[in-house]
């Protein structure tokens, strides 16, 4: 009898767990690995505490543009958390997997956390790098990924451009400034993490242009005393957006969980996790708590400085556009 009951019980648990298992796939970009490792564990707890089923969140990471391409080609992401809005626009336009106005679905243009672009230099700042203009000096080797393949690199490029225009007064002067900067680029990796490895692990270059969160992480993982972070006088407000991929989540029957997954990013706990992983939180209270970590500097947005991502892409990064002209003329 006991045996029978045990068998029944185990059969029941199998049935229950088979029914209850929900799986989400979050397709993300390179630097968020550590952030989502922590966030996924917290969300799974929160979801179950709120009466949800047991939930598994799978992660896929890679260069932002490459990941968007994979989702368009059929990588079944329930949510995407990518490096820039342009890549999710591509999923909406070319893949038709979510509405074109996806960015209105969540607060703050669907970017629950932000970052900015900073300069990472070696201990003691041997080349005396204080701001963007130091990167155009002779004999300074710069590391940045390729804007054609890396979302982070596009932010880097636009931040340098915004600084050039601000200090030199015109787009023409900014173009010369950025061209001069790219003459100093020693290695052009395909992604942000690859560029960090080139700079930090392989010891190439004097300065790495990178996400603030990536710079802090490099310090944390590879030695706080090996590198220094230089926040330039002007930089760009990098807004890595998030979205539920409606068509895929609808097919999987995971819309509700995917929605909750994104919403929880905006909660106090979600914002704390973002801040702990060196992303600038949106929530004013959490932001105030971590104020010491994130240096105040002037930040321009892509919308105000470059007329939005669609225009910035057409003018700067499309084939034959400004970046190609600058880089070919190197």
């Amino acid at each position: 009898m006991t045996k029978f009951r045990l068998a029944l019980l185990s059969a029941l648990t199998v049935a229950v767990s088979a029914h209850a298992d929900v799986t989400l796939l979050n397709v993300s970009y390179d630097p968020t690995r550590e952030l989502y490792a922590e966030y996924n564990a917290a969300f799974a707890k929160h979801w179950q505490a709120a009466g949800g089923e047991a939930i598994t969140i799978n992660q896929s990471h890679g260069g932002s543009g490459k990941q968007a391409r994979a989702v368009i080609d059929g990588l079944e992401a329930d949510v995407v958390t990518l490096g820039l809005a342009y890549d999710i626009d591509a999923i909406a336009d070319k893949g038709g997997l979510l509405p074109k106005d996806w960015q209105k679905a969540h607060p703050y243009n669907s970017t629950p956390y932000t970052s900015t672009i900073v300069l990472l230099v070696r201990k003691g700042n041997p080349k005396g790098i204080k701001d963007w203009n130091d990167l155009t000096r002779d004999g300074v080797a710069v590391i940045t990924p390729n804007p054609k393949t890396s979302g982070g690199a596009r932010w880097n490029y636009l931040a340098a451009w915004a600084y050039g225009r601000e200090t030199l007064g015109s787009d023409a002067a900014a173009r010369d400034f950025v061209a001069k900067l790219f003459k100093n680029v020693a290695v052009l990796d395909t992604g942000a993490r690859g560029a960090t490895t080139t700079f930090a692990e392989r010891g190439i270059g004097d300065v790495l242009i990178t996400w603030e969160n990536e710079a802090y992480l490099a310090q944390k993982e590879l030695g706080a005393d090996a590198f220094e972070i230089v926040t330039p006088s002007l930089s760009i407000l990098a807004e890595p957006p998030v979205a539920v991929v409606d068509k895929v989540a609808g097919k999987h029957g995971t819309l509700q969980a995917a929605q909750a997954y994104i919403d929880y990013l905006y909660s106090k706990e979600g914002q704390e996790i973002a801040a702990r992983n060196f992303y600038r939180p949106r929530d004013p209270e959490v932001a105030a708590k971590y104020a010491a970590r994130f240096k105040d500097t002037r930040l321009v947005t892509v919308d105000e400085a470059f007329g939005g991502w669609a225009r910035a892409h057409a003018e700067h990064f499309a084939d034959g556009a400004l970046f190609d002209q600058i880089f070919d003329g190197r």
Binding site: L25, D30, R33, N58, S60, H61, A70, T197, L217, L222
Partner: peptide, 22 residues
């Protein structure tokens, strides 16, 4: 592959991922 951890990563891909995670 799609690089989904625990699902579509082969050993060589897993090596790359770990390396990129420091």
């Amino acid at each position: 592959s799609g690089h989904i951890r625990g699902l579509t990563n082969t050993l060589p891909l897993h090596v790359e991922i770990l390396y990129n995670e420091y």
